[in-house]
Design a protein around this nucleic acid. Structure first.
Lengths: 338, 338
DNA sequence: CATTGGCACTCGGCCGCACCGAGTGCCAGC
DNA sequence: GCTGGCACTCGGTGCGGCCGAGTGCCAATG
């Protein structure tokens, strides 16, 4: 087990390195932090920390930098989430309050998060899986052509074209619309399938095919749209990444273009409601020198989607975590209101 | 006026420089292109071209590189759009054919364009200004709460919440819905305002306020949504930009995050239906070392939106223009079908 | 036994230097 | 007007030496 002071040394190393981006040596450490011991002592501690794999030297006779494991320990034990200041909170709230629709909420959130953390922000659109149906609308575009519009309680709207097997009259349409809504409005997505299961039977034989088609399209939409969309922003912040540019930045940009990767990235959330993935903890290769801070957010007590930031492993964890948490909280509020 | 051969020399310089990314000298030119003259002659020509401002030397005793003016001449007079090959065309078509909805079409287009040109792709969503209304739907969410859904002929759907000044019955709602659609369905956005102008008058006094509210929300939506959305992709290609990284790439990433800038970027389109903005011709500062190739696309003969790519001024203009044109053409087809 | 000051050692980074070669401009000759 | 020749320029590269930050080890000390 590491002594209290050694942990203190590790904390100091992380803080300094995050600030300066340069390997930190024993002398500098004692000068900038009042540890109450001499450089020589710190050297011993550093040797021990290196032995345990928390820090490393880029090359012999250079200062130390934290390893992924070192950051892990730092995040888990050595620091607390840094709360936003009052003015910051108000600014967040004001900025988000101006949003007019869902796209705008998400767009603003991304910009806000990118600006606050000076990193790349990723915001997932509110998920449909936990959402409920607010309304299903059916429109007749042509004799045998319908449009299905699905409206969710998070304000999301999805539409699908439907080619009917047979012409479908206005009265049948109104009938179907009414029955459909009386069954599914206000219900959770997951419950919809069994709620509409027996619906075709109650229609005339000639309309049954169309009804079945409509239903299967609806179910398809529910499933398909569970594949979440997301928005990213602040990619310009990648330029602050480091010195060895193209090599670092390229795979990150590539990863950011793949929705699938990003969705995985936001990943699970731990007990405090926030997840921090450091360096190699991210499955994706290109992101081995980045950390991801993510958190769930939602309109109620339940999380409906996630948001987070992607930045260099050498990042200001307390500040980033604070910003991410604060933004998630306020977005949740906004969603609950609308 | 420049002699035929000098133009030929300029063309050769552009082609070589685009390929190698290195200043090209007189000797190398005569070796790689059969100009039928000696290096010394080429040197004279180069001096003349430099005099006219078409090429420049990064420093004394180095090869020449084209200036923006040089690229301009190259694009205008010295080259033709390079058409896609048959297999390429088929690949484009196949890839786009798989799209299920508008978002998907735009998403696929961006990825395709980025991949074909190996540059940053920008695709504007089909614009609403020239679109027509397919359907307007009104849903009652609560006694005094409505949702307005607008569906356009390009498959786009917009929704807005409406808080009514007074409760609004189901029959009034159905009435309004019917009348509204009979007036605006199939009409162009621009024509909608006068078509609905006198609508409130035909309702009972108690409903008039609500009808007016609905109409103003509708008109607002039409206007607001004329501010176009767009999608970008292929930012990872920025890493191929050059050697002096952070400096070049940063402002570009920043510019790409500002919708307004991007929308301006796609800009006007010249007679051949394609616009090429080279270097400083782009108003935005950060883009002074990039070129933008853009073109309009549409479901009919008329363009409803634009798409294009952003890349280094040193780009393969013929190839890029060919790819952009081809993609625009096929996207237009896809949109026309749906 | 932890802490400390001292000391020799190690490298990476930073000059300054010389060299090389690609490229130029100019000029005399064809 | 084109060409070959020639002197000149200057950026890039490789080498050697210096400097300094940082380390590890050790003996001394409380």
């Amino acid at each position: 087990m590491l002594s209290e002071r050694r942990l203190e040394v590790l904390r100091a190393i992380v803080q300094d390195y995050v600030g300066t981006e340069e390997p930190v040596g024993s002398k500098a450490l004692t000068e900038r932090h009042s540890l109450g011991v001499s450089p020589a002592t710190v050297r011993n501690d550093m040797a021990a920390l290196e032995e345990e794999g928390f820090i490393a030297q880029p090359h012999t006779s250079a200062g130390r930098i934290p390893t992924d494991k070192g950051y892990r320990l730092f995040v888990d034990k050595l620091t607390a989430v840094k709360p936003m200041t009052g003015p910051e909170r108000r600014a967040i709230q004001n900025f988000l309050d101006g949003a007019v629709d869902l796209d705008d909420v998400v767009g603003r959130t991304v910009r806000l998060l990118a600006q606050l953390t000076r990193q790349v922000a990723v915001v997932q659109y509110p998920s449909l899986t936990r959402s409920t149906v607010r309304h299903v609308e059916l429109l007749s575009l042509a004799a045998a052509r319908l449009m299905l519009v699905l409206i969710t309680d998070t304000g999301r709207v999805e539409q699908r074209m439907i080619d009917c097997p047979a012409p479908f009259g206005e009265t049948s349409l109104a009938d179907l619309r009414a029955r459909l809504n009386s069954r599914v409005a206000g219900r959770r997505f997951a419950d919809v399938p069994q709620l509409v299961q027996d619906l075709p039977e109650s229609f005339d034989a000639e309309d049954r095919g169309t009804v079945a088609t409509v239903l299967s399209t609806l179910l398809e939409t529910l499933v398909e749209e569970t594949e979440e969309r997301l928005m990213i922003g602040g990619t310009a912040n990648l330029t602050r990444f480091g010195h060895d540019f193209p090599l670092t930045i390229r795979p990150v940009l590539e990863a950011l273009e793949e929705q699938v990767v990003l969705l995985k990235l936001l990943g699970e959330v731990n007990d405090s409601g926030m997840a921090v993935r450091i360096g190699h903890e991210n499955a994706h290769e290109g992101l081995s020198s980045t950390s991801v801070v993510s958190v769930g957010y939602g309109s109620g007590s339940e999380a409906v989607a996630k948001l987070g930031v992607v930045g260099p492993t050498r990042m200001d964890y307390p500040g980033t975590m604070g910003a991410v948490r604060a933004v998630a909280r306020y977005v949740g509020q906004i969603l609950a209101e609308s």
